[in-house]
């Protein structure tokens, strides 16, 4: 009997904890978004966050996209050559990269780099009283620290994914023309003949949502971290893990919403 009661209590604690977490996260997100639209605005901080999230993540996102496009071409060739469907490789590469792999892989990479840095920075500010100090200096920390990061995430990720899309396609092009015997003209014609505007747009919508999620989880976990260095470490880990899981889950939901037969 005790075992059952303990089990129910444990399940209840998990459910309550989850509800509390989701509630806190929801209120934090609403507050953060509302501060984006209300003055004062901090253009310098938005610019700084754009550099942190966008520019400094560019190398890792670019390399990931390039190699993903290259691998995709090789793997597609392995499978498609068994059905004499090698000509579909270009369209498979471009559709996979623009609709799916570009935004998801860029999201995971940016989460690991910029999301972690965001959580560590805000977490350190929290445990060293810098966030409290902001409040005592007539500055709302949500407006000063969180809103610029949320906005920068939504702007920077689509820009990164545009570049990732181009480099991913270029990776496939390089492997297909240099190693698999495609002519450049044939490959490019095949690529663009199957690509529609909505393929790219759906990827960019995903990117904007993922950018918001990365900034939200980095800010949220950093903002409420406690307990010194260990707390900051835990906040950083949690920011990356929760953002990565949310990106993968939201990817399915958005794919379903944006699905075109």
């Amino acid at each position: 009997m005790n075992f059952i009661l303990n089990l129910v209590a444990a399940i209840g604690a998990v459910v309550l904890g989850t509800v509390e977490f989701v509630g806190e996260l929801g209120l934090f997100a609403i507050s953060g978004v509302s501060h984006i639209f209300r003055p004062p605005y901090y253009p310098r901080l938005i610019g700084r966050s754009l550099m942190e999230i966008g520019f400094y993540s560019l190398p890792v996102v670019a390399l990931t996209a390039l190699f993903t496009g290259m691998v995709l071409a090789l793997q597609s060739y392995t499978g498609f050559s068994r059905f004499n469907a090698e000509s579909a490789i270009a369209s498979i590469v471009v559709l996979s990269v623009t609709r799916e792999l570009g935004p998801v892989l860029a999201g995971l990479m940016v989460s690991g780099r910029a999301g972690a840095a965001m959580a560590a920075e805000l977490g350190t500010m929290r445990v060293t009283d810098q966030i409290d100090a902001l409040s005592t200096l007539s500055t709302d920390p949500m407006k000063y620290l969180v809103a610029p990061r949320l906005l920068a995430g939504v702007i920077a990720m689509p820009l990164l994914v545009c570049i990732a899309d181009i480099l991913g396609v270029m990776g496939g092009f390089l492997v297909s023309t240099e190693k698999l015997g495609f002519t450049p003209d044939t490959y490019l014609i095949s690529t663009f003949s199957h690509l529609r505007t909505e393929d790219v747009v759906s990827g960019l919508i995903k990117a904007a949502v993922f950018g918001f999620v990365i900034s939200l989880m980095g800010s949220f976990n950093g903002y409420r971290s406690k307990g010194g260095a260990q707390g900051v470490g835990a906040a950083t880990t949690s920011a990356v893990v929760t953002a990565s899981i949310l990106i993968l889950a939201l990817d399915y939901i958005l794919t379903q919403v944006l699905f075109v037969k």
Binding site: T128, D129, Q130, A133
Partner: peptide
């Protein structure tokens, strides 16, 4: 307010 560890913005 003067905070215990200064709380200067890094």
């Amino acid at each position: 307010m003067l905070f215990q560890n200064g709380a200067l913005f890094d």
